[in-house]
């Protein structure tokens, strides 16, 4: 399947998935079962810190929660893009979680969330980082891609769809 063209962190155009270079296979999880937004954010933090050994899980967790309080990152159609700015990192890192049970998320369209695309970016986030986030946000507009995400049967599948 074709992915739209995106800018990578160096600014050049690339035909790869939105999270190419920002996501490792061990930052992808399917069949995640959580009972609340708070626990989801703990899981998200657990996966995010695998991308950078200097990250602290508690810090990432609290920043994600703090950002969520300013406004939900549920972008509609069951997708959320929780994210945070973080001191002390140079490059962004991502995590992807698919939930077994959709979770109430205070999203724009009121739909519960089942796919979570999370991102942490350096504190002095640049235009490039904003574009990654905007590209993630756009994914919810594409019914075909949403169907692909739901149809993925393994972490590898989901990983390949996004990188």
């Amino acid at each position: 399947m074709s992915s739209p063209t995106h800018l990578n962190p160096s600014g050049s155009s690339r035909p790869n998935g939105v999270l190419h270079g920002l996501l490792a296979l061990d930052q992808v999880a399917i069949d995640v079962s959580v009972s609340s937004k708070k626990r989801l954010m703990e899981e998200v933090a657990t996966l995010l810190i695998r991308g950078n050994s200097s990250l602290n899980k508690d810090t990432v967790f609290h920043l994600l929660v703090a950002r969520e309080r300013l406004g939900s990152t549920g972008i509609g159609h069951g997708i959320a893009i929780p994210h945070a700015r973080l001191n002390g990192i140079q490059t962004p890192t991502a995590a992807v979680l698919r939930l077994t049970r959709p979770l109430s998320f205070d999203a724009l369209d009121g739909e519960p969330v089942s796919l979570v695309l999370a991102l942490v970016v350096p504190a002095d986030a640049t235009e490039t980082h904003l574009q990654i986030l905007a590209a993630l946000a756009k994914l919810s507009d594409d019914p075909a891609r949403r169907a692909d995400f739901h149809a993925a049967t393994s972490c590898d599948d989901l990983f390949n769809l996004l990188t």
Binding site: G71, T73, I75, I81, H83, V121, L133, A137
Partner: peptide, 8 residues
């Protein structure tokens, strides 16, 4: 007063 999902 809530920000949009893409506010970073």
């Amino acid at each position: 007063f809530q920000v949009a999902a893409t506010f970073i």
